[in-house]
Design a binder for these strands. Structure first.
Lengths: 207, 207, 207, 207
DNA sequence: TCTTAAGCGAGACGGTACGTCGCGTCTTGGC
DNA sequence: GCCAAGACGCGACGTACCGTCTCGCTTAAGA
């Protein structure tokens, strides 16, 4: 494998750095995620890191996007409730229990101190993730199972927002019943506007 | 006022430190909120800071609790929707537009890196705030305007969670329509179980 | 012993740094005389070094002046030749064989790259040393043993210049005969102007 | 001109490197004489430098020897004093005022830190220069104008040593009167041994 | 004529040391 | 006894050069 010359950077070094950053964060927490520690663990010179990444959060973002971006694609079973339940459960698990989620929480924390990182995180991860969050709703609208809402972004926020709140603010676990609570709401709501003869909302809530 | 003697701690110094921390955060961001900068700005010795606060985030937490704790008490008009609208609007404003909200965001960010701070933030602020968030719902239940939900905490989360999500994760503004969207949902839902002939949800949505 | 506070720097740290610099130079040469090595060896923080010395050569100069400044004071026996022989021999030994001479050679080397250091070295050491080099001549003039030369500085240079040349440029040793060669020259010369009936040159040479 | 191929090294690159090293030293001083700066200024790859020179001081030595080696050949007028005056004046000018002298001072400085360089400097420059310094004396001896001294090297040192001392140590200028002072000494001395038939000087020198 | 191999410009690499910043600890003298 | 002041040991920062390496280009000697 080539090790860095005029024709481009060393892929070997790049991967070692991303892996080291990930490992250090998960093993020792953000406080011990220093550029020096990453360099040492990756067997790489500090200058190599600074050559390619402006800051350690950029390394983390790179690692995060490489590893985890596509894990949270919702299923498409043709049934809105089923899709949402699966997706919200996956999001909850990602946020609270996965290594990638730990990276995400650290990046979100840093983005609250650094608008530049916030912009990158939104551009390179969040916008795509929010699009995935909207997918089940959009598909249901397309199928005619759901009336088009005024603001589908806000609707998606009402589904995932509480999950982020728990993961980032209260630090509590997210049991299945919490996800079910979100689903009941949605159904009642969504049905409410297309309903006339009632019924389906209740059965959905019982699902 | 005394400036340090055998009679106990200097209130003057304490307030100067809290004010300096607040100001530095709002003016220059968390990165420049250093103990040395706080000491210099407050005209205080570093040792005085370390004597009374274990870390700079404890200063921030102190300042935050002193300043802002009681701003977010919901009104009690006797009408659930009115109370919630006012409260959620106040929470949204707090999170996205106030100086205290900036401090809160910084503390939340740090708490994601520091479990000890997370525990303190929950014990000294969040638990009280969440109690305040529940108040309108609990009062409505007491009035008989709302059936007792299985998990009133989760219900409150569904109201405030999306606000935190916007403030902490997406960084978007929170327009009044976003709050209204939350209210419609809730009402439809909450009413759903006590309802039989429906309707009030629609009028609430129009408010 | 006090360890540094508002009332001044730590003498303990100062001496440890000077000693460490000296030792490292003598043991490992100038190439390994790094600020980090000095700090580590002295058990001192780098910042403490940078707080008090602008560069590592200033440390060396400090150490040199503290240790070695007064070692090269010429004797005063009342006999010019005897005084000069002792003094030149001491200078030769200092330049080529002593630890302090190694420091001096390193400082002179650096002063050739750094005019600021050159100025300090002259102001804080060389001017005093040159005054000492002139002393035997001046005393001989005062005694009437030597006519006042036009340029006593130049006369002293003719005595010590060849010693520095050997020590700094050719790197050769300086045997006693080399010093004697210098003495013969001088005496012949000095006598030359006061002489008429010869004599003193011979007696001086025999001293 | 060829720029690197199987036929041997590029003379173009060699000269560009030597010129760049010289220029950088004279323009910006030794501190900014880095291999990277030389490479950039010469329009040459670092590897090309390392292929042909072990270190940057070797480049300097190469440049110095190429440029300046033969500038200091003493004249041969048949008169010792005239020859010495011209030669010592030329040496003084070289040491204190020429670009080549700046290179020489830098090399001498480095040689005080690096015995390997010191050896090369002596072998490739100093020994020849000292031979040139001896030439007028040797010619005078051959002509019978001067008795053969016990140590002609030492005699030459007494002439040039003070010049090096001024150039390298005190940093003072070298006015014509300084050179004259050296000549007077020498002459008195040299005459002294051929005079009288005496010889007390010889016994002193041997002491 | 075509291959091929040495020297080249370029520049990424693993390192070492630099000089700076902020941490949390300490010691002092004043109030 | 708390305070302002500030020196201290420490660790990490981001930068500058070191000397090594690989790459693709150029070019002339020899197949």
């Amino acid at each position: 494998m080539h090790r860095g010359n005029r024709h481009g950077r060393s892929e070997e070094a790049r991967l070692a750095v991303l892996q080291a950053a990930d490992d250090l964060l998960v093993e020792h927490g953000f406080a011990r995620l220093t550029v020096e520690a990453i360099a040492q663990r990756a067997g790489v010179a500090k200058q190599t890191i600074y050559r390619w990444w402006p800051s350690k959060t950029d390394i983390l973002l790179d690692a995060f996007i490489t590893d985890a971006a596509e894990e949270l694609t919702p299923p498409d079973t043709g049934d809105l409730i089923t899709d949402l339940r699966a997706h919200l459960t996956a999001v909850a698990r990602f946020l609270t229990m996965s290594d990638a989620g730990a990276v995400f929480r650290a990046l979100t924390a840093e983005s609250l101190h650094d608008p530049r990182l916030a912009a990158r995180l939104r551009a390179e991860y969040l916008s795509a993730q929010r699009a995935r969050d909207r997918l089940p709703l959009q598909r249901a609208v397309a199928r005619g199972d759901l009336p088009a809402p005024a603001d589908i972004d806000a609707m998606a926020d009402r589904l995932v927002g509480p999950l982020y709140y728990r993961a980032l603010v209260t630090g509590e676990e997210i049991p299945p019943s919490y996800v079910e609570g979100l689903l009941v709401f949605r159904m009642v709501d969504s049905v409410e506007e297309s309903q006339e003869e009632g019924g389906p909302g209740a059965s959905a809530a019982g699902g």
